[in-house]
Computed example of a mutant assay.
Amino acid sequence: MTTINDRTLPVFEAPAATPVPVRAAPSIFHERWWLDIATQGDWKLAMVKQNGEVIGEMPYAMQRTRLWRVSHLPPLTRTLGPVIKSVTGSEARQLHHELDVTGKLIEQLPDCDSFFQVLDPRIDDALAFALHGFTVSARYTFRIDWNTTADEAWKRLNSKTRNVIRSASRELTVVPDITPDEFIAFYDANLAARSRTNAYGDAVMRDLVNAFVERKAGMLLGAYGPGGKLVAAVGLVWDHQAMYYLLSSRAQDAHSGSISLLLWTGIGRALERKLTFDFDGFSSPSTFSFLNGFGAKLTQRLGVERHGTVYLLMRTLKRKFVPGRVFAPNL
C-alpha cells in the first residue's frame, strides 16, 4: 500500500495481463475520428495492400498557408508514423519487410514544402525515411511501464515531487471525470488571465475533449480547493497500450503541487488499467526538470522531416533576424 500524509492509498493492481507484443500498433492519434477532428477533415491515408489485405498505413495531414504547402502533426496529435503488419521469420526478413512497406508508404506522401512527423515511440528506427532523403532526429518523452506497481512508482519519485504531492493532497480534493464544459471554461479562463490564446484552436480542442470523453478514450481530472473552487485540471487520453498526459491548466493562485497531484492520480489510473503512462514529451528545460521528478524512464521518439530548399532558406533567415525566438522543426 502507498501512503500520503499517513493516509493509506490503494495499490493499483489488476489481474495480470501481458500486452500482445507489436512493433507499431495504432495509437489513439491514428484513430480516424481523432484525425477527422484534429485536422477538420483535411488528412489522407497512404496505404499498402498485399493480396487484398492492408499491410501498411500512414496517415498525414495537409495544410496550405499563404506561402507553403505543409504536412505537419495536427493540433494535440503527439505522434503518428507508419503502422505495419508484422511478419514472422528472421530479423533480416522482418527488416526487409519493414523497409519495403515503409518505402511504398513514403512514395505516396505528397510533394510539399515541409513534412514533419514524430513517430510512435514503439518505432525504434527510421531507416526507411533516412534512405528516402528524410532527416531523422531524436526527441524524448518519459514513460512509466504498465507492469510497475504503485509502490514502485511512488518510491521512484524524487523527494521534492513526493513532498509537493503530499502537501497538495492536504489542501486539495481530486475529482475524476469533471465535465468537458467545466474543463474548457476553466482552461479558457486561465488563458484569458494570462492574456494568451489557445495554441491548439478553440474549436479543435473543444471537439477533441468532447469526443474522447464521449468515447471513453480519455478523462478529465480536477483539483478543488477550499470552497469547492476548481484550481487545476488535466486531460488524459488512452489507447490499448498507453495513457497520455495531453492537457493541463491551473489557476495562477493554485497550490504549486496541484498538477503533480493530478498526474500522480493519473499514473495510478494507468497502472490500474495495465497501461503505460506516457508524459508525452517536453519542449523546454523547465518542463524536463518538472517531469524528471516523477522518476519515469526517458524514452526516445524519432522525428522525421523533409523540407524544400526555399522553405529551409526562409526558416534560416527567420532564425537569424528574429532573436530570442525558438523555431521547432514543425514550424
Rank of each mutant, 00 (worst) to 15 (best):
L172N: 11
F129C: 02
F282C: 01
A211I: 02
D278W: 08
L127V: 14
A193L: 08
L220V: 01
A16N: 13
F321R: 06
I178H: 04
A153Q: 08
A126K: 02
T39H: 08
N330V: 04
N198W: 03
D202R: 15
P74N: 03
T77W: 10
L275G: 05
A328C: 09
K160A: 09
D151E: 15
G227V: 10
D36H: 10
L220Y: 10
V204I: 12
F282V: 01
D181V: 09
N147V: 00
M1Q: 11
I123D: 00
T79Y: 14
V204P: 14
S71F: 05
R170P: 05
G201P: 05
L261P: 11
G222E: 08
H255D: 11
L45Q: 13
N330T: 06
L331M: 13
D145T: 12
L312Y: 10
H72Q: 09
L76N: 08
A270D: 03
M219L: 13
L208A: 07
N198E: 11
L157K: 10
P329D: 05
I37Q: 11
T179Q: 13
E98L: 03
L331I: 11
M205L: 15
E31C: 07
H72I: 08
L172K: 12
D188S: 14
V326G: 07
A203F: 06
L95Q: 12
M1L: 14
T102G: 02
A130M: 10
L247R: 07
N198Y: 03
K85H: 12
F186H: 10
R170F: 04
L9H: 11
T102M: 08
G308A: 04
T197F: 13
Y224C: 01
N292D: 11
A128I: 00
G52S: 06
K155G: 07
R170W: 04
H255V: 02
R64T: 07
L35A: 03
V136R: 01
V87N: 05
A296S: 07
A61M: 11
I267Y: 04
Y187Q: 06
M62I: 14
S114E: 08
N330C: 08
P26L: 00
F327C: 03
L261T: 11
C112K: 12
M314G: 14
L262V: 02
Q50V: 05
W154M: 10
E91R: 15
L157M: 09
A254L: 04
A185N: 13
G266R: 03
I123T: 01
R139S: 13
L317R: 06
L157I: 02
R306Y: 05
I123L: 06
P26C: 00
V20W: 07
G324H: 09
K318G: 09
R306K: 15
G225P: 12
M62C: 14
V204F: 07
R215V: 05
A16T: 13
Q94P: 02
R162I: 00
L76M: 15
F12N: 14
Q108N: 03
D36N: 14
P176H: 12
R66N: 10
D188H: 13
A150K: 12
W68E: 00
K216N: 15
I4E: 09
R69M: 04
R66H: 15
I178P: 02
W264T: 05
S256M: 08
Y244L: 03
R170A: 09
A199M: 08
I259S: 14
